[in-house]
Simulated scan of single mutants.
Amino acid sequence: MWIVIPAATVVGALAAMVLFLRAPAVRELRRGMIITAIVAFVLALGGMALLGIPGAIIYGISAPFVQLLMGARYADLGDGAWPAAIFITLIWPASLVVAYAVANGPLRGRGRGARWMALILIPYAFGVLLALDAHLAAAAP
């Protein structure tokens, strides 16, 4: 059942990329979106070559918020930490595509600070959601 969050992440990233590439208002930014998608793909493959270490780093950065969200139900992943890190390594790069689409789509007319905050906070929020998903999947019977 907990496959909904990562599936929604990937589908959302693909939808954001397609909508962004088809929008006539951002025609000059298409090259940046294509480069971002290629970088996300390379990060996912490179993370697999590193055996999930990037996912472990993202999980470690996201863990304090997962503890706050879960409260007393929070428990260490134990042997499930390594598969969770590999899982996060594969899915998290899709958030870069979404962040680029949001920063250069709806926030395009805003200031540079708002766009940079979107580029930083959207991938971080995806990391927290994926870490939370790993904990919820481990707790499920």
Rank of each mutant, 00 (worst) to 15 (best):
I35Q: 13
R108A: 11
V98A: 03
I57S: 07
G12F: 03
A37R: 01
G71Y: 02
P83S: 00
G71H: 00
Y74M: 04
G111A: 08
Q67D: 04
V4Y: 13
A49E: 14
D76A: 14
A25T: 12
L68E: 08
Y100R: 07
V18L: 05
A118D: 01
A8C: 02
G111E: 11
L68P: 01
R31A: 11
A8R: 03
L29D: 13
M70W: 01
A99L: 01
G109L: 12
G111Y: 12
R22C: 12
V42R: 09
G71M: 03
I3T: 13
A85N: 08
I58G: 05
L129W: 09
L132P: 04
G32S: 09
I122S: 06
I57F: 08
A139S: 11
P141S: 14
F20P: 00
A118I: 04
M33H: 03
R112W: 14
V42H: 06
R31N: 12
G12M: 02
A81V: 08
F126M: 08
F87E: 11
A85W: 10
Y59Q: 06
G32M: 09
G60A: 13
L21H: 01
Q67W: 05
Q67K: 11
L29M: 07
R112N: 15
P106T: 07
G111W: 13
A49D: 13
A15I: 09
L130A: 08
A99E: 00
G105M: 05
P123D: 01
A81N: 12
M17Y: 03
R31Q: 07
P141H: 09
A101C: 07
L119K: 14
G71D: 03
G46A: 02
Y124A: 08
A99R: 01
G111K: 10
V42T: 14
P83F: 02
L136Y: 05
M70K: 00
A37C: 01
T9S: 10
I61Q: 03
P64Y: 10
M1V: 13
A137H: 10
A94C: 04
I120W: 11
V11A: 10
L121E: 06
A140P: 00
L121A: 11
L50Y: 04
F41C: 14
L119W: 13
R115K: 15
A44Y: 10
M33L: 05
G105K: 07
M48G: 14
G111D: 10
D76C: 03
A15P: 01
F20A: 00
V102W: 07
A49H: 12
F41T: 15
L68Y: 09
L96T: 09
G113T: 15
V39K: 10
G71R: 02
A94V: 04
I58W: 09
S95P: 00
P83K: 02
P141W: 09
L43S: 01
M48V: 15
L21K: 02
Y124P: 05
R112A: 15
G109M: 11
V26S: 14
A118N: 00
A16I: 05
L69Y: 04
I57E: 01
L129V: 04
W116T: 14
L107W: 05
M70S: 02
I58K: 04
R27H: 06
L119Q: 12
A40D: 00
L43N: 00
A49M: 13
V102T: 02
A63R: 13
D133C: 09
I34H: 10
R110H: 14
R108Q: 05
G80H: 15
L77E: 03
A101G: 06
